[in-house]
Design a protein around this nucleic acid. Structure first.
Length: 729
DNA sequence: TCATTATAGCGCTGT
DNA sequence: GCTATAATGA
């Protein structure tokens, strides 16, 4: 490719970053400012102009999706010049993926078992539960989750159990005990959790200077995306790897740091220019995504945060439409309104896939989903239960892991009696005891107990059946392709049949998921010659969050949390549930720092929108099984008034102003049924708001509602079905 | 030992 | 409201 062509598509600031002489670089890139483009072009520049070899470059991202996208764009830009070998030397991956790769190559030096397993957070919790039993700790006093959170927090900070000072504080002392025992359990079982991947590979380098030197010499250029999301270990890892001779390009946006709860340190971006010598800083502030109105709103909201590096997005484009704000009666009404707006959008020629509904927490998705489903609008939900975290999938993977490694205790425990085959709590308890005494795995304990006739005839038969099943599958594994093997595992283990017999839609969905897993395995491309396809697949499954690409091309409404929306953009965006206690979340309301993170989340949400942004909130919402009346989010108030227009319902039924004569309801024959004995001017009582007077009627059937002016001052629309108004005389 | 039912506990974000 | 455990009966 021609160099001019490489630079033509860039603005001045972008070009400055792309063509910078070799140095450490900090690129502060606002939302929609072409961050990925700069990264990709920078790599292309290094390769084609500076003649840096691909194997000297490492590009690090946070999600698999981002890594995939970068690789694709890079291939498109320079791939043809390098041919099929293009992907070989260049490392593009997530922090976790790269750390995993290193540990796989140097398991011995890292002090791991060769076939170590990656724990996802559910697996991790299981291990912690086992540890609790061992230590005889009360999970009521010290919840499992708290221990999990504690351990991960320590690891994210680079701290091992041994680094923790002994404390007289009972909580800290207990957590330390759990941490110590947890480390031992992982050590024994060859288990590695997410945080461990990073911590372990960091330690590997400190422990083996010659290994470090090898990689330092190799990777002269390291580029990191979403730098504001790095945690302490990742930052340290990076510094060590870069050493004195490599150049680091850090791209990030302090205003989009939304993973503080996961250990991300916004300070890393502040410290960068101190810690990496001769850093040049570039700001990308021109936005190519959103309208002027949307940007003005985003800028106004984020301006309320303190300690920012400072950045103001601007666009040369049009102001565009105002931001809509819809106040719904309840969450049902909110969903209805969103669906209506989507229908209008489509009628005017819009695509479903160009619209996104964003929300703070996954729990909000259900009502929205139902409303879309009722209207036959295709939708796709991101996140939530991930594919590889589903029960039936994890069970299948457990079988596969056992095939690969009999001593995988977590897999053993998971499926020894799934589907049920007569190996109950009593038998497994016996196995566990032997395993503990002998310091062996549950599989070996099984062999042991059978040899010593330590079980009833029935239990022995059942256990033998299970062991034979695994052996048989293993034997078959040599002959079969990965896809066929998984197919066989699913059928022979009885999982398939088990879920088929499960009643209801749930079983159906699970069967489909199993089929999908088989499909995924059939299509899985084996890359690394040193690993078996099964081995490679299992590792990939553990690291892959399971964002499937195929569906991206499907024309469907995109639904996701604000967190998973980062990095994406859509012409039409709904921000649902902009209410206090929900967004900002009530867990964050008291802590100024957490509140600022919520605000950044809001900033992320607003800047996803390209053309039109619609905010919705509900006056009353069923949350955790309770009716809540949350006020409108403070973030909405932070948007200048002149950028927002309130939309009232585009009523399908004209709103009658006179109710003196009930015959006015020509278009609403069931009005009597719907509104019963309620009349205009009727005094009513509500158990939360107290007494008031009815001002207006609207809707029918389940959406029949009345506007009430309460003596306490406020005026509210109430859905009759939920409000349970008492008629006063 | 299994399957059903009752109860308690817990709520966010996710590599 | 949901899930994960505990208690119950087959």
């Amino acid at each position: 490719m021609d160099v001019t062509e490489l630079l033509d598509q860039l603005n001045d600031a972008q070009r400055e970053a792309v063509c910078a002489p070799s140095c450490n670089q900090l690129i502060l890139a606002g939302a929609g400012s072409g961050k990925t483009r700069v990264l990709v072009h920078r790599i292309a520049w290094l390769m084609q102009v500076e003649h840096v070899a691909p194997y000297q470059i490492m590009a690090v991202t946070f999600t698999n999706k981002a890594a995939r996208e970068m690789r694709e764009r890079l291939t498109r830009l320079v791939g043809e010049n390098y041919g099929a070998n293009f992907g070989r030397g260049l490392w593009v991956g997530t922090f976790h993926g790269i750390a995993h790769r290193l540990l796989k190559s140097h398991w011995q030096e890292a002090g791991l078992l060769q076939n170590f397993q990656i724990l996802d957070s559910e697996d991790q919790l299981r291990v912690i539960k086992r540890v609790y039993q061992e230590l005889q700790l009360d999970d009521k006093k010290w919840p499992h989750r708290q221990a999990q959170y504690f351990i991960n927090e320590q690891k994210d900070e680079g701290k091992r159990a041994q680094h923790l000072a002994d404390s007289h504080d009972l909580y800290l002392a207990t957590m330390k005990r759990v941490y110590v025992a947890y480390e031992q359990a992982c050590e024994r079982g060859g288990l590695v959790d997410f945080a461990e991947l990073l911590l372990r590979s960091h330690e590997l380098w400190l422990k083996k200077p010659d290994l470090l030197e090898h990689y330092q010499r190799r990777f002269n250029y390291i580029l990191v995306d979403e730098f504001q999301d790095t945690n302490a270990v990742q930052y340290a890892w990076l510094r060590v790897l870069a050493g004195q001779s490599s150049y680091v390009t850090a791209v990030g946006d302090d205003d989009q740091s939304i993973y503080g709860w996961r250990g991300a340190r916004i300070e890393n971006i502040h410290h960068f220019s101190h810690d990496f010598s001769d850093t040049t800083t570039t700001r990308l502030e021109q936005n190519y995504r959103s309208t002027g109105t949307i940007l003005a709103a985003a800028n106004a909201v984020i301006a309320n945060n303190t300690g920012r590096l400072g950045k103001k997005l601007w666009t040369s484009g049009k102001d565009g439409e105002l931001i809509d704000l819809y106040t719904a009666f309840n969450e049902q009404d909110e969903a209805r309104h969103i669906v209506d707006r989507i229908k209008t959008w489509v009628e005017r020629g819009g695509n479903l896939k160009n619209t996104a509904i964003l929300y703070r927490s996954n729990a909000q998705s259900r009502v929205l989903e139902e409303a879309l489903f009722r209207e036959n609008i295709a939708y796709r939900i991101y996140g939530g239960l991930r594919f590889y975290e589903r029960l039936e999938i994890k069970n299948t993977l457990a079988y596969l892991r056992l095939i690969q490694n009999r001593n995988d205790d977590s897999g053993f425990e998971r499926v020894v009696n799934t589907p049920t085959r007569g190996i109950g709590a009593k038998t497994t308890e016996a196995l566990r005891e032997i395993a503990r005494d002998q310091g062996c795995s549950l599989y070996q304990a099984s062999l042991h107990i059978i040899a010593n006739k330590g079980l009833t005839v029935r239990a022995t038969g059942a256990l033998n059946g299970f062991l034979n099943l695994i052996d048989e599958l293993d034997k078959e594994a040599e002959e079969l392709s990965l896809g066929d093997l998984v197919d066989l595992v699913v059928k022979k283990s009885g999982l398939y049949e088990f879920h088929q017999n499960e009643k209801g839609e749930r079983g159906q969905a699970r069967v489909e998921n199993l089929q999908e897993l088989v499909n995924a395995c059939r299509q899985y491309e084996h890359e690394d010659e040193e690993l078996s396809p099964l081995e490679e697949f299992l590792d990939a499954a553990a690291l892959d969050a399971g964002e499937r690409q195929a569906d991206e091309y499907e024309d469907a409404v995109q639904m996701m949390t604000l967190h998973s929306a980062k990095g994406l953009e859509f012409p039409l965006v709904f921000l649902a549930g902009v209410e206090e206690n929900l967004f900002p979340h009530r867990m964050s309301a008291d802590d100024p720092e957490k509140l600022e993170e919520e605000r950044r989340l809001c900033y992320v949400g607003i800047t996803r929108a390209m053309e039109k942004l619609i905010l919705t909130h509900a006056e009353s919402r069923r949350l955790y099984g309770e009716e809540k009346y949350n006020g409108i989010s403070r973030f909405v108030r932070e948007i200048p008034k002149d950028l927002v227009q309130e939309v009232r319902i585009k009523s399908s039924i004209a709103r009658p102003t006179q109710f003196s004569n009930k015959n006015n309801f020509a278009f609403n024959e069931n009005a009597d049924e719907d509104f019963g004995e309620l009349q205009l001017g009727q005094f009513v009582a509500h158990n939360k708001f107290g007494e008031g007077v009815i001002l207006q009627f609207e809707g029918r059937g389940s959406s029949a509602r009345v506007q009430v002016k309460f003596n306490s001052g406020g005026t509210k629309w109430l859905v009759l079905q939920y409000a349970k108004l008492q008629v006063l005389c």
